[in-house]
Structures are given as structure tokens and as C-alpha cells.
């Protein structure tokens, strides 16, 4: 059951991302991307990471994508006829490099590898303990980074 859901969600992610990167209208691209992120959040939940799944929906689909939408609407970029869409000349290096990456990934299937036996599911309690005890310094560094990003964004966005 969970396996079938995983593969369906994987197909949704790939198709939605494909539509997102070929869409000329940036707002449509972002809506496709939100779909993809929702499916990815469910995959995170299936992989035993409920907290990361919730944060994916709240922060990625909720905050970051809405930030993109804000900027697109503020700068009035939602006119696909003004955007120069990439032609075949732009797509072929992308296709080439993406194909190489995909070939390398598919090679993973052919190489048999015996991973260690799976550990149990990770509860929110274990997650929080690791986050704030073992990686407490990383949380502090990330908070400083967010503060610096805030100051930098304020500096760049000020009126002159």
C-alpha cells in the first residue's frame, strides 16, 4: 500500500516539476511547484519524517513560494508574452547534463548494494533531542544566519 502511494507521489512530483520548468508563465510555474512540494511532503511523511513533512508544507510551499509570488506580483513580471522563453539552443545543454545525471542515477539500480538493516521510525521526541542537544550550536548558527539575511534584505531593499 505505502509502496504504491510512494510511486504515485513520485510520478506526481516528476510531472509537476517538468511542467514547472517548461512553463513560460512564472506564476503557473510556482503553482505547479507547490503541487510538487506537497507530494514531496507526503513522501517525507512516508519515510518517517513527519516533522520535516510539516515544515516542508509550512516553510517551502507556504512561505518561500508565497515570497516568490509576492516578488513576481510586486515587479509585475506575470506577462508571459514579454518573457523570452528558452529555445532549443538553451535546452540542449540542459538535456545533455540532465541525461548524464540520470544515467549515473540509473546505474545505482544495476549495482547491488546491501545496506544495513533499517532502523526503526524516528519519533518527534528523538528528533527534537538530537536537534537541540547534539546540534544545538547549529541551531544558533542558523538563527544568526537568518538575522544576517534579514539585515541584508533590508539593506538591499531600502529606498534611495
Amino acid at each position: 500500500m505505502e509502496q504504491i502511494i510512494f510511486y504515485i507521489l513520485a510520478a506526481i512530483i516528476v510531472i509537476a516539476t517538468l511542467f514547472a520548468i517548461t512553463e513560460r508563465h512564472t506564476v503557473h510555474a510556482i503553482v505547479y511547484l507547490v503541487t510538487s512540494f506537497f507530494a514531496l511532503a507526503v513522501i517525507f511523511y512516508l519515510l518517517g519524517a513527519p516533522l520535516v513533512a510539516v515544515f516542508e508544507v509550512i516553510i517551502y510551499a507556504g512561505a518561500i513560494m508565497v515570497l516568490f509570488l509576492f516578488v513576481i506580483m510586486m515587479l509585475d513580471l506575470g506577462h508571459p508574452e514579454k518573457v523570452s522563453s528558452p529555445g532549443w539552443r538553451d535546452w540542449w545543454p540542459a538535456t545533455l547534463l540532465g541525461g548524464v545525471l540520470l544515467a549515473a542515477t540509473v546505474l545505482l539500480l544495476t549495482v547491488p548494494h546491501a545496506g544495513p538493516a533499517g532502523g526503526g521510525a524516528i519519533g518527534v521526541r528523538d528528533f527534537a533531542r538530537a536537534l537541540f542537544r547534539q546540534y544545538g550550536i547549529a541551531v544558533e548558527v542558523i538563527s544568526m544566519q537568518l538575522l544576517f539575511a534579514l539585515v541584508g534584505a533590508l539593506y538591499l531593499g531600502r529606498r534611495r
Partner: peptide
């Protein structure tokens, strides 16, 4: 993180998310 039953991967995913929000802003 799921394969090895360790929390480190999830913590790292959370760090990536925080880093991304700073980067995008």
C-alpha cells in the same frame, strides 16, 4: 535518515530548509 534510523538526516533537512529561507529572502 530512514534507512539507518538516525535523526541526523532529518536535522540536516531542517538546516537546509532554514538555509534556503535565508537564501531566498
Amino acid at each position: 535518515s530512514r534507512l539507518w534510523g538516525a535523526t541526523d538526516g532529518q536535522v540536516f533537512a531542517l538546516m537546509i530548509m532554514a538555509m534556503t529561507s535565508a537564501e531566498v529572502s
